[in-house]
């Protein structure tokens, strides 16, 4: 780091976030996010990919921007609860090569990233690339049989099958860090939307002759949500900046050490903050939030689902504990 301290969102970040938001506004993403029965919206996914949004931070695509642009994109996709393996795709693009990488980049092949030993495979019935996030890195894998469809809390069709893994893929460490940044950003985006919309509800709905937001029992939990989201977002931002700055440290044995540490903090923070936000906002919405067509459930179930995605919490915990001096 040689520049001056700066946490501002850059023009490049604003531009890509704006483009993604416009796409989401014009492509019925809300309907897809609320769907609980249908097939995965592959055409929507391809159309999103056609914007080139998966290129930032990918090796060989330096002109497309870095992790900071990726963070801005993922936060915006989170705002719209965009369905699909967003973080897994960014992680995969760090480790895949050749035709497979181009298929993923174009949205023609969906990525399923699962944990070691898992047989429940995210988007397993429609995925074209299977990866495993293990303790030692990311592995390519093949299902032993066609995954059987399984419906999940997030309204997504996952699959069940055993996987056979191959060796650790090159650039795995980068892939895992980018995956953490992407997932953190997605979770903070969706949680930020929940806080904003729930606050708007609290500012207008009246009970006992006052708006809900005039009661500290309502406004203070929402303030706590906003604080948690801001903390996670700041960490994700710092992690992305550290990742992008790695070129300055490429002579170091571990040029992404700072990004790894901050990204582990970011995903821990984002998961914790987004889940707390989901529960607090449901409480503020009361009965209105209990309906399927209501304002919250399609967002909160997505938070819950993404928070449980691979890699497992044990990975980030190992990084955080080692950094704190509590090794194995």
């Amino acid at each position: 780091m040689t520049g001056s301290l700066d946490f501002a969102t850059s023009e490049e970040q604003q531009a890509v976030a704006g483009a993604v938001a416009r796409f989401c506004e014009t492509h019925a993403v809300e309907r897809a996010a609320r769907d609980t029965e249908g097939d995965f919206p592959l055409e929507l996914w391809r159309a999103l990919a056609a914007m080139g949004i998966f290129a930032p931070a990918a090796p060989g695509y330096e002109d497309a921007g870095g992790a900071l642009e990726l963070q801005a994109i993922c936060a915006t996709l989170g705002e719209y609860a965009f369905p699909g393996p967003v973080a897994a795709t960014y992680a995969a693009l760090q480790v895949l090569t050749g035709v497979t990488r181009e298929q993923v980049m174009a949205g023609d092949a969906l990525v399923s990233l699962s944990g070691a030993g898992d047989t429940l495979l995210p988007y397993g019935t429609v995925a074209g690339v299977f990866l495993i996030a293990g303790d030692d890195g990311i592995h390519h894998a093949e299902p032993a049989s066609a995954p059987a469809a399984v419906r999940t809390l997030g309204g997504e069709a996952w699959g069940r099958a055993a996987l056979t893994a191959s060796g650790v893929l090159k650039n795995s460490a980068r892939g895992l860090v980018i995956g953490d940044i992407a997932r953190s950003a997605y979770l903070t985006g969706i949680a930020a939307r929940l806080v904003r919309e729930t606050s708007e509800h609290a500012a207008t709905r009246k009970q006992f002759g006052k708006t809900l937001g005039e009661f500290q029992a309502v406004s203070h939990p929402l303030a706590d949500c906003a604080i948690a989201v801001a903390a996670a977002n700041t960490l994700a931002h710092a992690a992305a900046a550290a990742f992008d700055a790695r070129a300055a440290d490429d002579l170091s044995p571990d040029p992404i050490a700072a990004a790894r540490r901050l990204a582990a903090g970011a995903i821990n923070s984002a998961r914790r903050g987004a889940l707390a936000t989901a529960y607090a906002c449901h409480q503020v919405y009361g009965g209105i939030g209990m309906t399927l067509e209501g304002p919250a459930f399609h967002l909160t179930r997505r938070i819950r689902q993404v928070a449980s995605e691979a890699p497992a919490r044990s990975r980030e915990q190992s990084i955080l504990l080692a950094d704190a001096g509590l090794g194995n």
Binding site: A231, A238, G265, N268, L321
Partner: peptide, 27 residues
């Protein structure tokens, strides 16, 4: 270890939020 990992992440949170406050003032 479960509890310490969360605390370590929260220390990172306040370190970065502290710098964000600083950055806002610098700007």
């Amino acid at each position: 270890r479960e509890r310490m990992a969360d605390l370590a992440a929260r220390v990172l949170e306040t370190e970065m939020l502290g710098r964000k406050v600083l950055a806002t003032m610098v700007a």
